[in-house]
Design a protein around this nucleic acid. Structure first.
Lengths: 142, 142
DNA sequence: GTCTTTTCTTGAACTATTCAAAAGAAGCTA
DNA sequence: TAGCTTCTTTTGAATAGTTCAAGAAAAGAC
Protein backbone atom coordinates (compact mmCIF):
# COMPACT_ATOMS: atom_id res chain seq x y z
CA UNK A 1 0.00 0.00 0.00
CA UNK A 2 2.22 2.78 -1.27
CA UNK A 3 1.19 6.36 -1.87
CA UNK A 4 -1.43 7.33 -4.41
CA UNK A 5 1.14 8.42 -6.99
CA UNK A 6 1.41 6.83 -10.42
CA UNK A 7 5.11 6.18 -10.14
CA UNK A 8 7.25 5.95 -7.03
CA UNK A 9 8.60 9.15 -5.58
CA UNK A 10 12.12 8.03 -6.42
CA UNK A 11 11.23 7.42 -10.06
CA UNK A 12 9.49 10.75 -10.40
CA UNK A 13 12.42 12.59 -8.87
CA UNK A 14 14.95 10.74 -11.00
CA UNK A 15 12.86 11.25 -14.12
CA UNK A 16 12.95 14.97 -13.46
CA UNK A 17 16.74 14.85 -13.59
CA UNK A 18 17.28 15.26 -9.87
CA UNK A 19 19.28 13.10 -7.52
CA UNK A 20 17.19 10.87 -5.33
CA UNK A 21 17.79 11.71 -1.70
CA UNK A 22 15.93 10.88 1.46
CA UNK A 23 14.72 14.46 2.11
CA UNK A 24 13.41 14.78 -1.44
CA UNK A 25 11.65 11.45 -1.29
CA UNK A 26 10.09 12.37 2.03
CA UNK A 27 8.90 15.77 0.81
CA UNK A 28 7.47 14.31 -2.38
CA UNK A 29 5.61 11.59 -0.51
CA UNK A 30 4.27 13.98 2.11
CA UNK A 31 3.03 16.27 -0.62
CA UNK A 32 1.26 13.37 -2.30
CA UNK A 33 -0.72 12.82 0.88
CA UNK A 34 -1.51 16.48 1.44
CA UNK A 35 -2.22 18.05 -1.96
CA UNK A 36 -1.89 21.70 -0.96
CA UNK A 37 0.86 22.16 1.56
CA UNK A 38 3.19 24.93 2.59
CA UNK A 39 6.85 24.38 3.37
CA UNK A 40 5.98 24.77 7.02
CA UNK A 41 3.21 22.16 6.81
CA UNK A 42 5.55 19.65 5.26
CA UNK A 43 8.30 20.38 7.73
CA UNK A 44 5.85 19.78 10.57
CA UNK A 45 5.16 16.34 9.12
CA UNK A 46 8.84 15.65 8.56
CA UNK A 47 10.73 16.84 11.61
CA UNK A 48 13.80 14.90 10.51
CA UNK A 49 14.12 17.08 7.41
CA UNK A 50 15.28 20.64 8.01
CA UNK A 51 12.97 23.44 6.92
CA UNK A 52 15.58 24.65 4.47
CA UNK A 53 15.79 21.26 2.88
CA UNK A 54 12.05 21.32 2.45
CA UNK A 55 12.36 24.69 0.73
CA UNK A 56 15.25 23.40 -1.38
CA UNK A 57 13.41 20.28 -2.42
CA UNK A 58 10.26 22.21 -3.28
CA UNK A 59 12.21 24.82 -5.20
CA UNK A 60 14.07 22.15 -7.15
CA UNK A 61 10.83 20.29 -7.84
CA UNK A 62 9.19 23.48 -9.06
CA UNK A 63 12.11 24.29 -11.35
CA UNK A 64 11.99 20.76 -12.71
CA UNK A 65 8.26 20.99 -13.31
CA UNK A 66 7.39 18.33 -10.74
CA UNK A 67 5.34 20.63 -8.56
CA UNK A 68 3.43 23.82 -8.98
CA UNK A 69 3.68 26.76 -6.65
CA UNK A 70 0.54 28.63 -5.67
CA UNK A 71 0.39 31.80 -3.65
CA UNK A 72 -3.09 32.90 -2.66
CA UNK A 73 -3.12 36.42 -1.24
CA UNK A 74 -2.56 36.41 2.48
CA UNK A 75 -1.30 32.84 2.61
CA UNK A 76 2.17 31.39 2.56
CA UNK A 77 3.32 29.70 -0.63
CA UNK A 78 1.61 26.38 -1.22
CA UNK A 79 2.76 23.51 -3.40
CA UNK A 80 0.89 20.83 -5.30
CA UNK A 81 1.84 17.82 -7.38
CA UNK A 82 -0.93 18.27 -9.89
CA UNK A 83 0.91 19.93 -12.74
CA UNK A 84 -0.24 18.24 -15.92
CA UNK A 85 -3.61 19.91 -16.34
CA UNK A 86 -5.12 23.34 -16.34
CA UNK A 87 -6.89 23.71 -13.07
CA UNK A 88 -7.65 26.49 -10.64
CA UNK A 89 -8.26 26.99 -6.95
CA UNK A 90 -11.02 27.68 -4.53
CA UNK A 91 -9.79 29.27 -1.32
CA UNK A 92 -11.77 29.60 1.89
CA UNK A 93 -11.51 33.11 3.28
CA UNK A 94 -12.33 31.69 6.71
CA UNK A 95 -9.94 28.84 7.30
CA UNK A 96 -7.68 28.96 4.27
CA UNK A 97 -8.66 25.54 2.95
CA UNK A 98 -7.91 25.05 -0.73
CA UNK A 99 -9.72 22.91 -3.29
CA UNK A 100 -8.88 22.21 -6.90
CA UNK A 101 -11.37 23.26 -9.54
CA UNK A 102 -11.35 22.55 -13.23
CA UNK A 103 -11.83 25.59 -15.38
CA UNK A 104 -15.43 26.72 -15.23
CA UNK A 105 -16.41 27.52 -18.75
CA UNK A 106 -13.98 25.52 -20.80
CA UNK A 107 -10.56 26.84 -21.49
CA UNK A 108 -10.58 29.59 -24.04
CA UNK A 109 -12.91 32.20 -22.57
CA UNK A 110 -11.11 32.51 -19.28
CA UNK A 111 -7.73 32.36 -20.91
CA UNK A 112 -8.23 35.17 -23.36
CA UNK A 113 -8.49 38.61 -21.85
CA UNK A 114 -10.37 41.34 -23.67
CA UNK A 115 -7.20 43.33 -24.20
CA UNK A 116 -3.64 42.14 -24.03
CA UNK A 117 -1.99 45.56 -23.80
CA UNK A 118 0.73 44.18 -26.06
CA UNK A 119 1.61 41.38 -23.65
CA UNK A 120 2.75 37.98 -24.81
CA UNK A 121 0.48 35.86 -22.63
CA UNK A 122 1.71 32.73 -20.91
CA UNK A 123 -0.93 31.60 -18.44
CA UNK A 124 -4.16 32.59 -16.77
CA UNK A 125 -4.66 31.81 -13.13
CA UNK A 126 -8.06 31.87 -11.46
CA UNK A 127 -8.62 32.01 -7.74
CA UNK A 128 -12.14 31.66 -6.45
CA UNK A 129 -12.70 33.08 -2.99
CA UNK A 130 -15.50 32.04 -0.71
CA UNK A 131 -16.43 30.27 2.50
CA UNK A 132 -16.14 26.53 2.76
CA UNK A 133 -19.16 24.62 3.99
CA UNK A 134 -17.92 24.52 7.59
CA UNK A 135 -17.02 28.20 7.75
CA UNK A 136 -20.27 29.21 6.06
CA UNK A 137 -22.16 27.16 8.61
CA UNK A 138 -20.23 28.70 11.48
CA UNK A 139 -20.72 32.24 10.17
CA UNK A 140 -24.42 31.91 9.50
CA UNK A 141 -26.06 28.89 11.13
CA UNK A 142 -29.29 29.01 9.13
CA UNK B 1 -5.53 70.78 -12.85
CA UNK B 2 -6.41 68.37 -10.11
CA UNK B 3 -6.01 64.62 -10.21
CA UNK B 4 -7.99 62.38 -12.52
CA UNK B 5 -10.47 61.41 -9.83
CA UNK B 6 -14.20 62.08 -10.05
CA UNK B 7 -14.42 63.73 -6.66
CA UNK B 8 -11.70 65.32 -4.61
CA UNK B 9 -9.59 63.08 -2.43
CA UNK B 10 -10.98 64.78 0.65
CA UNK B 11 -14.58 64.16 -0.41
CA UNK B 12 -13.90 60.52 -1.22
CA UNK B 13 -12.22 59.97 2.13
CA UNK B 14 -14.94 61.75 4.05
CA UNK B 15 -17.65 59.91 2.12
CA UNK B 16 -16.07 56.66 3.22
CA UNK B 17 -16.55 57.69 6.83
CA UNK B 18 -12.90 58.45 7.53
CA UNK B 19 -11.36 61.61 8.88
CA UNK B 20 -9.65 63.72 6.30
CA UNK B 21 -6.00 64.09 7.14
CA UNK B 22 -3.00 65.22 5.19
CA UNK B 23 -1.36 61.76 5.00
CA UNK B 24 -4.58 60.18 3.78
CA UNK B 25 -5.15 62.85 1.17
CA UNK B 26 -1.57 62.51 -0.04
CA UNK B 27 -1.78 58.73 -0.28
CA UNK B 28 -5.11 58.86 -2.09
CA UNK B 29 -3.85 61.41 -4.59
CA UNK B 30 -0.59 59.58 -5.21
CA UNK B 31 -2.53 56.40 -5.83
CA UNK B 32 -4.75 58.20 -8.34
CA UNK B 33 -1.65 59.06 -10.33
CA UNK B 34 -0.11 55.59 -10.11
CA UNK B 35 -2.93 53.07 -10.41
CA UNK B 36 -1.07 50.01 -9.13
CA UNK B 37 1.23 50.95 -6.32
CA UNK B 38 2.77 49.23 -3.34
CA UNK B 39 3.06 50.87 0.07
CA UNK B 40 6.77 51.28 -0.62
CA UNK B 41 6.11 52.96 -4.00
CA UNK B 42 3.78 55.46 -2.41
CA UNK B 43 6.11 56.14 0.47
CA UNK B 44 8.90 56.85 -2.02
CA UNK B 45 6.68 59.49 -3.61
CA UNK B 46 5.65 60.88 -0.24
CA UNK B 47 8.73 61.07 1.94
CA UNK B 48 6.93 63.35 4.39
CA UNK B 49 4.47 60.58 5.23
CA UNK B 50 5.85 57.72 7.29
CA UNK B 51 5.73 54.25 5.78
CA UNK B 52 3.45 53.10 8.59
CA UNK B 53 1.03 55.89 7.86
CA UNK B 54 0.95 54.79 4.26
CA UNK B 55 0.12 51.26 5.44
CA UNK B 56 -2.46 52.64 7.84
CA UNK B 57 -4.11 54.78 5.22
CA UNK B 58 -4.18 51.97 2.68
CA UNK B 59 -5.53 49.53 5.23
CA UNK B 60 -8.24 51.94 6.29
CA UNK B 61 -9.12 52.67 2.68
CA UNK B 62 -9.34 48.98 1.91
CA UNK B 63 -11.59 48.35 4.91
CA UNK B 64 -13.79 51.23 3.84
CA UNK B 65 -13.99 49.93 0.29
CA UNK B 66 -12.12 52.86 -1.22
CA UNK B 67 -9.26 50.79 -2.55
CA UNK B 68 -8.71 47.23 -3.56
CA UNK B 69 -5.73 45.19 -2.50
CA UNK B 70 -4.05 42.90 -5.03
CA UNK B 71 -1.26 40.46 -4.31
CA UNK B 72 0.24 38.84 -7.38
CA UNK B 73 2.53 35.94 -6.48
CA UNK B 74 6.06 37.10 -5.87
CA UNK B 75 5.14 40.76 -5.61
CA UNK B 76 4.46 42.95 -2.61
CA UNK B 77 0.87 43.98 -1.99
CA UNK B 78 -0.41 46.47 -4.53
CA UNK B 79 -3.34 48.84 -4.20
CA UNK B 80 -5.70 50.35 -6.73
CA UNK B 81 -8.55 52.84 -6.66
CA UNK B 82 -10.62 51.04 -9.26
CA UNK B 83 -13.10 49.21 -7.06
CA UNK B 84 -16.49 49.63 -8.69
CA UNK B 85 -16.19 47.13 -11.51
CA UNK B 86 -15.20 43.55 -12.08
CA UNK B 87 -11.79 43.66 -13.63
CA UNK B 88 -8.71 41.52 -13.58
CA UNK B 89 -4.95 41.90 -13.96
CA UNK B 90 -2.22 41.22 -16.43
CA UNK B 91 1.16 40.91 -14.77
CA UNK B 92 4.51 40.97 -16.55
CA UNK B 93 6.74 38.13 -15.37
CA UNK B 94 9.74 40.15 -16.48
CA UNK B 95 9.39 43.56 -14.91
CA UNK B 96 6.30 43.23 -12.73
CA UNK B 97 4.25 45.80 -14.61
CA UNK B 98 0.51 45.47 -14.05
CA UNK B 99 -2.36 46.34 -16.39
CA UNK B 100 -6.07 46.21 -15.83
CA UNK B 101 -8.16 43.93 -18.01
CA UNK B 102 -11.91 43.73 -18.20
CA UNK B 103 -13.36 40.27 -17.89
CA UNK B 104 -13.40 38.61 -21.30
CA UNK B 105 -16.82 37.07 -21.06
CA UNK B 106 -18.74 39.47 -18.88
CA UNK B 107 -19.27 38.82 -15.24
CA UNK B 108 -21.04 35.60 -14.46
CA UNK B 109 -19.08 33.00 -16.43
CA UNK B 110 -15.83 33.83 -14.74
CA UNK B 111 -17.50 33.50 -11.38
CA UNK B 112 -18.84 29.99 -11.68
CA UNK B 113 -16.40 27.13 -11.30
CA UNK B 114 -17.31 23.65 -12.46
CA UNK B 115 -17.58 22.41 -8.88
CA UNK B 116 -18.02 24.45 -5.76
CA UNK B 117 -17.08 21.76 -3.25
CA UNK B 118 -19.81 23.17 -1.05
CA UNK B 119 -18.27 26.62 -0.89
CA UNK B 120 -20.31 29.78 -0.73
CA UNK B 121 -18.56 31.75 -3.45
CA UNK B 122 -17.78 35.42 -3.10
CA UNK B 123 -15.45 36.43 -5.91
CA UNK B 124 -13.32 35.13 -8.72
CA UNK B 125 -9.98 36.69 -9.36
CA UNK B 126 -8.08 36.21 -12.59
CA UNK B 127 -4.41 36.93 -13.02
CA UNK B 128 -2.97 36.73 -16.51
CA UNK B 129 0.78 36.20 -16.63
CA UNK B 130 2.96 37.06 -19.57
CA UNK B 131 5.66 39.34 -20.87
CA UNK B 132 4.95 42.97 -21.58
CA UNK B 133 5.91 44.33 -24.98
CA UNK B 134 9.23 45.69 -23.75
CA UNK B 135 10.25 42.53 -21.89
CA UNK B 136 9.16 40.32 -24.81
CA UNK B 137 11.27 42.45 -27.14
CA UNK B 138 14.26 42.27 -24.81
CA UNK B 139 13.92 38.51 -24.37
CA UNK B 140 13.52 37.71 -28.04
CA UNK B 141 14.46 40.55 -30.40
CA UNK B 142 12.85 39.08 -33.53
C1' DG C 1 -11.92 77.05 22.75
C1' DT C 2 -12.23 72.69 24.89
C1' DC C 3 -12.73 67.89 24.84
C1' DT C 4 -12.91 63.30 23.08
C1' DT C 5 -11.64 60.25 19.72
C1' DT C 6 -9.07 59.09 15.88
C1' DT C 7 -4.81 59.18 13.55
C1' DC C 8 0.24 59.74 13.05
C1' DT C 9 4.76 58.71 14.23
C1' DT C 10 8.73 56.23 16.01
C1' DG C 11 10.50 52.09 17.09
C1' DA C 12 10.37 47.32 17.59
C1' DA C 13 8.70 42.72 16.45
C1' DC C 14 7.47 39.09 13.47
C1' DT C 15 6.75 35.73 9.52
C1' DA C 16 7.98 33.74 5.45
C1' DT C 17 11.67 33.19 2.55
C1' DT C 18 16.37 33.35 0.84
C1' DC C 19 21.45 33.38 1.18
C1' DA C 20 26.06 31.33 2.45
C1' DA C 21 29.52 28.03 3.72
C1' DA C 22 31.05 23.81 5.52
C1' DA C 23 29.88 18.82 5.96
C1' DG C 24 27.92 14.90 3.84
C1' DA C 25 25.83 11.87 0.32
C1' DA C 26 24.80 10.42 -4.66
C1' DG C 27 26.22 8.30 -8.42
C1' DC C 28 29.74 7.95 -12.22
C1' DT C 29 34.16 5.78 -13.58
C1' DA C 30 37.45 2.42 -13.57
C1' DT D 1 33.68 -1.20 -4.73
C1' DA D 2 37.10 2.51 -3.96
C1' DG D 3 37.80 7.01 -5.37
C1' DC D 4 36.36 11.22 -7.27
C1' DT D 5 33.45 14.91 -8.52
C1' DT D 6 29.35 17.15 -8.18
C1' DC D 7 25.12 17.99 -6.04
C1' DT D 8 22.54 18.28 -1.47
C1' DT D 9 21.85 19.00 3.17
C1' DT D 10 22.45 21.38 7.19
C1' DT D 11 23.22 25.14 10.42
C1' DG D 12 23.09 29.72 11.04
C1' DA D 13 22.31 34.25 9.68
C1' DA D 14 20.16 37.78 6.81
C1' DT D 15 16.47 39.93 4.40
C1' DA D 16 11.92 41.96 2.80
C1' DG D 17 7.52 43.08 3.72
C1' DT D 18 4.13 43.76 6.99
C1' DT D 19 2.10 44.32 11.51
C1' DC D 20 2.04 45.62 16.46
C1' DA D 21 2.33 49.08 20.31
C1' DA D 22 2.44 53.43 22.89
C1' DG D 23 2.88 58.19 23.30
C1' DA D 24 2.24 62.68 20.72
C1' DA D 25 -0.58 65.27 17.65
C1' DA D 26 -4.54 66.55 14.99
C1' DA D 27 -9.69 66.22 13.56
C1' DG D 28 -14.10 67.33 14.32
C1' DA D 29 -18.15 67.78 17.69
C1' DC D 30 -20.10 70.79 21.16
Amino acid sequence: MTAAVPVSAADAIRAAGLRVTEPRRAVFTALAGHPHASAEDLHAQLPEVSLQSVYNALGDFATAGLVRRIEPAGHPMMFELRVADNHHHLVCTGCGAIEDVDCAVGHAPCLIPSETHGYRLATAEITYWGLCADCAQAADPA
